[in-house]
């Protein structure tokens, strides 16, 4: 039933069909024809997103063993474990575009793939568990909710599942900070210090300013991205500026204001040079994060091989039995 699809005439028809689906705000599914650039953009974005979940486990896993109460230990474990799950959902979505998880993993540990730059900052104190949950997961959720409507079906579906599960991540972070802020002087100081350190990096999670984000336009035209970086960042600032009051803490930015004319929240300048430095691998923890991922992958190789070998032997045994019967 498969027909030749690579004559120019057909390609045009395929392109028209693709364009029509996008224009209708319908969804593209794995076996549909899609422009190579669309496939490439998505593969890059979804795999980066998956890598971010996996590398993002590390700063928090760093505190599982030292969590200061058993309840917090259980919550943190469940959260870091969720992130492994989210990485898996996203790798699955990316795989439907034709790149295997193995290839993506190889790219990651070879240092060829990117992931969210924020995970290259260290989680120095317990309060960082709060700030990461509140600000980093908060920014991630603000980014991800519109992605539930991304034009690529498997990506949207993965995001729906992730957003549902992540609703507890941000809340548990907020509650950690709330507890610290209402605690001893030392605890409150710890909380404020963490908010000070994670505020700017979390705003930069939305990506460079719109006029410096060359790929954004195309992604929006393809209905992958629904809102611009600056739009999402502004909305996020509007949310946390209120939430921080409940925490009894402050944001390290005295230039936050609501611009009545544009109807948007504005914030002080961000150090985009630092962003680029960290992105380029010169952040505080880049080498450490990759080394740990590489070590887990390498140390696990013999286990994966053993399981595959066992499966092959069992399958061979079953075949023998079948033939004998």
């Amino acid at each position: 039933m498969t027909t030749a699809t690579d004559t120019p005439q057909d390609l045009t028809a395929e392109q028209e069909q693709f364009d029509r689906l996008i224009a209708e705000d319908s969804r593209i599914e794995p076996r549909d024809w899609m422009p190579e650039a669309y496939r490439k953009t998505l593969t890059r974005q979804i795999s980066q997103h998956a890598h971010s979940e996996i590398i993002g486990m590390q700063p928090e896993a760093n505190w599982i063993s030292r969590a200061p109460s058993l309840k917090r230990k259980a919550i943190l474990m469940a959260k870091v474990q969720d992130e492994a799950g989210h990485g898996l959902y996203l790798y699955s979505a990316a795989e439907t575009l034709g790149t295997s998880r193995d290839t993506m993993t190889e790219d990651l540990i070879a240092g060829k793939a990117r992931y969210s730059s924020i995970f290259n900052y260290p989680a120095r104190t317990w309060a960082d568990m709060g700030a990461i949950g509140w600000l980093v997961d908060g920014a991630a959720i603000a980014n991800q909710v519109p992605l539930c409507r991304a034009s690529y079906g498997p990506y949207g579906r993965a995001m729906v599942r992730i957003c549902k599960e992540e609703s507890f991540h941000q809340r548990q972070g907020f509650e950690i900070l709330l507890e610290l802020s209402n605690g001893t002087e030392a605890q409150k100081k710890m909380a404020q210090d963490a908010v000070n350190r994670w505020y700017a990096p979390s705003l930069m999670m939305f990506g460079p300013p719109d006029d410096d984000s060359p790929n954004s336009k195309q992604s929006m035209a393809w209905n992958i991205k629904r809102f611009s970086n600056d739009e999402l960042r502004s909305r996020f600032v509007g949310m946390i500026v209120e939430q921080v009051k409940v925490l009894g803490l402050t944001l390290p930015d005295d230039q936050i204001r609501f611009n009545e004319e544009t109807g948007k929240w504005e914030h002080g300048p961000l150090d985009w040079n630092e962003f680029k430095e960290v992105l380029a691998g010169r952040g505080p923890c880049n080498a450490q994060r990759l080394e740990r991922r590489r070590a887990a992958h390498d140390d696990g190789a013999w286990v994966r091989e053993a399981a595959a070998a066992y499966a092959a032997k069992q399958a061979a045994k079953r075949n023998e039995l079948k033939e004998a019967a």
Binding site: E29, P30, R31, E95, T96, G98, S100
Partner: peptide, 13 residues
Amino acid sequence: SQTGDDGAKAPSA
């Protein structure tokens, strides 16, 4: 499919 969710085949590894 080798790559899930009704997907296209992955380049062989």
